[in-house]
Amino acid sequence: MDWDRVKIFHTVAEAGSFTHASELLNLSQSAISRQISALEESLGVPLFHRHARGLILTEQGELLRNTARDVFAKLSMAEAMLTESRERPKGPLKVTTTVAFGSVWLTPRIHGFLSLHPDVTITLLLDDSELDLGMREADIAIRMSPPRQPDLVKRKLMTIRHGIYASPDYVNRQGMPKTPAELDDHKLIVFGEDTAAPISNANWILDAGATPGKARRPILKVNNIYGIMRAVESGLGVASIPDYMVRENGNVVQVLPELEGPQSEVYFVYHEELRHSKRIAVFRDFLIREIEQSLR
């Protein structure tokens, strides 16, 4: 099996079209098509169904794509480990976490890390879905729940606690609730029903102290905690907010502090094959120090 043709096939399969693959490979579409046809001829099986709407992998194409993806992921991991300096951390580091945690807490601290380790290149992938670390979609994940895969290493970073908050402007206009039951009369901001919320029971504010038989109707539903925080800061209403966001912004006041909301654990996660990577170690240690300082 010709290795160069497999690399071209892998790019086309991931891109989904000759046009996009042509841009990525800097080759003409006709040259790519010839290489794919030659690979199919050498294997004796079709790899793509060709349609006017694009390319669809055949069953044999799916098998080769999955195998090639695994091979390239392992090669990428090997390359990173081989090129890392023995004396100092060096090389690329892809980090994924949720949009809210990455935007509010992590991104402002990257400058401090790169000042200490200028030979490390950071790529942040902010996504509320979990990327596949085994397939090298990222090197490190900062997750709001423990990993389920057995080949991933985890380290607990901190506990996130949720409370109820409003802006000073909102409290001046609407008053401060003195009991949980008084939330019935306030403008509540919650997660939408179809949202993959970062914690279970994310909309606990709808039930805390609620009058039996009287359903609370939120004034706004948002699919992201960062959006909820911004809505609260604007004075729109009251919402459950994680404590790390409050510490970073401070433009809100706590409502009914005696009410304890859900808690979640934050984990530093990476693939066990990167266990001895200096880049992983120094980034983990940096985050731990930053968390300790933020909690003082």
Rank of each mutant, 00 (worst) to 15 (best):
V104S: 14
L236H: 07
A215T: 13
K156H: 14
F48P: 02
N203C: 02
G112R: 12
S145V: 09
A141W: 03
F191E: 00
Q35C: 02
R69S: 11
L188K: 04
Q29A: 11
R155D: 15
D2Q: 15
I205T: 09
T159R: 14
E84G: 03
D128Q: 10
K187C: 07
K7H: 07
T195A: 12
N224Q: 09
D4S: 13
L287H: 04
G44D: 00
K94C: 07
S76W: 12
K7M: 10
S145I: 03
Q263W: 02
F72C: 04
F283Y: 06
I189W: 02
Y244F: 13
F191Q: 05
H10G: 02
E23M: 12
H117M: 03
K278E: 07
R289G: 05
A181E: 12
L24M: 10
S85G: 08
L256D: 00
S240E: 00
R275L: 06
T179N: 06
V71F: 07
K154D: 14
A210Q: 08
R173M: 06
I228T: 04
Y170M: 04
R289N: 09
D169C: 03
I225Y: 02
G44K: 05
E130C: 08
V246T: 10
T11R: 14
E62H: 06
L116F: 00
W204L: 00
G235L: 06
L75F: 07
K94D: 06
Y270P: 04
V269N: 05
S17W: 02
R109C: 00
I241M: 06
T83R: 15
Y244A: 04
E182R: 05
L43T: 00
I142A: 10
R53Q: 11
R289E: 15
D243E: 01
I280V: 12
G91N: 04
P147E: 12
N172M: 14
R275Q: 12
I110H: 06
D127G: 03
L39F: 01
T83M: 13
G237I: 07
T159H: 14
L43W: 01
L220G: 04
G102P: 09
P150S: 11
R5S: 10
R5D: 10
P212I: 09
P89S: 05
R5L: 10
F9V: 05
